[in-house]
Design a protein around this nucleic acid. Structure first.
Lengths: 233, 233, 233, 233
DNA sequence: AATGAATGAGCATTCATTCAT
DNA sequence: CATGAATGAATGCTCATTCAT
C-alpha cells in the first residue's frame, strides 16, 4: 500500500500472475475471468484492456514465461563450455524451473494443452526455440566428437523433451511430490540420453554390418544424418 | 460389458466408434452429444443408457481401446524372446498403432488430455500397464545382462514413453504427416534408448576435463534400485 | 389447467404471445429472454427450440401476425365490391386492428423498427403485400373510373400507409388514448385521400407555368397512369 | 449553447457532426462513443463535458438540427404568400432537406426512433412545431377559402407528415437512391393532398353508382414515360 | 477544460443431461 | 430399451460512463 500507488505498469503483471495461479488452481476452463480479476485486484473489464480474451491471456503467459525461462536457460548454459556438461545443465535447469514454479509448470504443462488454439493453430515459437537450444547442444557435441554423428539432433530434441516433459507432468500432477525426486530423475534421464548419444564406445546396436544372429534389424536404416523427420507445420 | 447382450449388441460399439471420430474431428469440448448420436444412428438419450456422461464416454474409449492396444502389443511381443528385440518391437508397435488409427490416436494423444478428470482424478491403469510392459522388458534385459543394472526401469519407462509420446503427438498434430516418417523416427529413438541402456560399454562419465576419481556414482549413477521415482497419485 | 395438458402444439404459440406482451411492455431491447420464458411458462432454452434467437422471434411475430392481419383484411374487403367502399374498409380495418391489439400494435409499430436487421436487411414481404392490397384497390378504382388515372398507385399506397401509420403510432404512444378517436381519424384521413384521388372534379392545382389562377397543373408530369414505380426490391 | 464560448467553440459542433455521421453509418446502438470521439478528434470523456450521455447526444442532434430545418423552412415559406403554394413549398423543402443531408436524414428518420426515451418519454417539441407550420398553412388556406373548412388541420398535418415521412424513410433506406425520384414523389403527394383538401369542388361522396363522365385528366397524361418514382431497393 | 485508463453491470445463448412417453 | 423435447445452469465480454490527474 505504501508504494503500490504506481499501479500503472504492474497492473498487467498482476493480471498475469493472478491468472497463472487461478489457471493452475482451477484449470483453464473452470477459471473465471472474475476470479482472476479479483485476485489481481482489478475489474473484470480491465483484463480486456491488456488481453484480447481469456485464451489470449493463456497464450501470452506462455509467450512471456517461456521467454523468461529461455533467458534463464541461456544464462545457466553460459556457465559451462563443455557440450556434455551443458546438456546436463539443460536437464537440471528444466526440472529446477518446474520445481521452483509449480503453478507456472501446471499452466505450461497441463492447462496450456487444453487450448484448442494452442494445439491446432498456434505456432509456439518459444517452444521451438527452447527445443532448438538442445538441438544445438547436440550439434556442438557432434562437432566436438562427443556425440555420434549419426544422431539426428532434431529427433533427439523431441525425444529428450518428451522424456523430460512426461516426467515433469507426472511430477506436476503428483499429489505426493516429496516422494518424487526430480533431481535424481533428471540425472537418470540425462545420463541415459548421453550414453545413447555419445561416441567413444563401440555401439553395440545392431549395425548392418553385424551378422550376429541376435541382431534384429540387420538392415536397420534408423539413422538419417541430415535433417530428417520434419517438425509439425 | 454389462448388459448389451440383448437386441443390438452393436449399439454401444457404434456409439464408441462415432465418438472416436467426432472427438478426433471436432475436439472433445466442441463435440456435441447430438453429433455423436446422429453419427451412431441413435437418439441422444440412448447414449446415456450406455455411458454415464460425455466424459465417461471419453474414459471408456480410453479403457477399451487401450486394452485392445495392449493385447496387440502382447501378441506382437510374443513373436520374439530377445529382450532387446522386444523393446524394438514395442516402439514399432506404438508408432504403427498410431499410424493405423489416426482418429483414435488423436483422441488418446490429444483430446483425452483435455479431460480435467483424466488428468487430475482418474487412475489410468491401462496406461500403467502399457508402461509396465516396457519396464518388464527392461528388467528382462537386465536379467539377461543386456541392460545395465543401474538403469531404473521405472524412470526408463516414463522417459521412453515420453519420447515416443511427444513424437507421436507431433505426428498427430502435424498437418503434413506424409513428410513425417514415423517408422524412421521409431528406430532412431529406440536405438538411442538401447544404446543408453545397454551394458557392455563402460559409461563415460561426463566432464572430460574431470579425471578426478570423485566422480559421482561411477558405477551406480542416479539409480534408485527400489521404489524409484513415484508415479502420480 | 384442465385441458392444458396438450402443451405440445401451443408451446410455440405461448412463447409468441408472451413475447408480444413483453416486447410491448418493456421494449425489444430491454425485454429479457427469461422474462418471455417465465411468462410463457417454459424454460429459457425452450425458446431456442422454436426460434433462432431473440431477433428471429421478433421477425417471426411480424411474419405471422401480419399474415393474420392480411387474412382479416382480405375477409373484410370481401364484404364489398365497390372500390371506394373497400378503400374505406381498408382504413377502418387498419385502425380497428390496432385498437383491438394494442400490444401487438406496439410491437409492429414501434419495437419492430428497433431491429437493425428489419430495417436494413430484412425484406418485409408481408408488409409489401399489405400495401399492395391498397395499391390494387386504387387500380380497381381507376379501372372503374372512380380514381383519376394519373394517380400513381405505388406512391399512393406509401403515402396512405404513411398517413395511417403515423396516426397509429401517435395513438399507440399516446398516454391518453381515450382522448384520441381513432374511428374519427380513420374517416377523416380516408376521405381526404379519396377526394385527392377521385375523378370527377377538375383539379385545381396551381403550377408556375400556369397563368390561370385556378388551374394548377395542366402539364403536371408527376403522374403516371399505369402501375409504374415498382416496389422495393 | 451554454459555455462553449471559451477556447474551442467548435469542439461541441465537431462532436455533433461526428455523431451524425457515425450514427448514420453504424446505427445508434452499434455506434461507440469512442468512434465518435475519434472522428471528432477529442477524448471519450470530453463528450461527457458537452452531453449528458449517448442518448442525450442523439436528442440534442434532433433539437438543434430540427431547429435549423425549421429556420430553413420558414425562410422558404416566406418566399410566397399563397397558402397553396406554400404547402407545395413545404413538401419540396422536406424532401430537399432529406436529399441534401442524407446522413442527418438517416439519423432523424431511422436512428432517432430507436431511442426508447425519444419514443416513450421525450416530448419532441421541435417536431410539433414543424408539424404546426403545416397546420397553420391549412388554416390559412381555409381562411382564404382555398381549403375546405371541414378539414381538421391537426389530423391533416399528421397524415401529411406521415405520408412524407414514410416516403422519406423508404428513400433513406433505399440502396439505390438514384432510382428513386424524390422530387417527383413530392409533387405527387402534395397534389394528392391538395386535391383532397381543396374547396371549389363538390365533395363527391362515395357513390358507386356515379358514372359521372368527368373522366379525370383524359388529356392530361401526366405521364413520365421513363423510370418514375423509384422505390427502395 | 481535457484526458483516457479503469470500471462493472448486464444477458443471450449453448448443450449436456433428464425423464415422460 | 429407446426416444427426443424440454430443461436451466453457467459466463465471457462489451462499452457507456466516471474521475483522478
Amino acid at each position: 500500500m505504501s508504494s503500490a500507488e504506481t499501479s500503472r505498469p504492474d497492473k498487467r503483471d498482476r493480471i498475469i500472475e493472478a491468472a497463472v495461479e487461478v489457471f493452475a488452481d482451477k484449470g483453464f476452463r473452470a477459471a473465471r475471468i472474475s476470479d482472476i480479476a479479483r485476485k489481481a485486484g482489478v475489474a473484470d473489464g480491465t483484463i480486456y484492456l491488456y488481453f484480447k480474451n481469456k485464451e489470449d491471456l493463456l497464450l501470452v503467459i506462455f509467450e512471456e514465461k517461456m521467454a523468461l525461462l529461455l533467458d534463464m536457460l541461456q544464462a545457466t548454459l553460459a556457465e559451462s563450455q563443455d557440450p556434455i556438461d551443458r546438456i546436463r545443465a539443460y536437464a537440471r535447469h528444466h526440472f529446477r524451473a518446474i520445481e521452483e514454479h509449480p503453478a507456472l509448470a501446471q499452466v505450461l504443462q497441463v492447462e496450456l494443452r487444453q487450448s484448442h488454439r494452442f494445439l491446432r493453430e498456434y505456432r509456439p515459437e518459444m517452444l521451438w526455440r527452447y527445443l532448438d537450444v538442445f538441438g544445438e547442444l547436440v550439434r556442438a557435441g557432434q562437432a566436438a566428437g562427443r556425440v555420434r554423428p549419426d544422431v539426428d539432433p532434431f529427433l533427439a530434441q523431441w525425444a529428450f523433451f518428451g522424456a523430460l516433459d512426461e516426467i515433469s507432468i507426472q511430477w506436476v500432477l503428483s499429489r505426493k511430490r516429496d516422494r518424487f525426486n526430480l533431481e535424481n530423475a533428471a540425472s537418470q534421464v540425462v545420463e541415459l540420453f548421453l550414453r545413447g548419444m555419445e561416441s567413444g564406445c563401440a555401439p553395440q546396436t545392431p549395425s548392418p554390418s553385424d551378422p550376429s544372429p541376435s541382431n534384429p534389424s540387420p538392415s536397420n536404416p534408423t539413422v538419417r544424418p541430415s535433417s530428417p523427420a520434419r517438425s509439425p507445420s
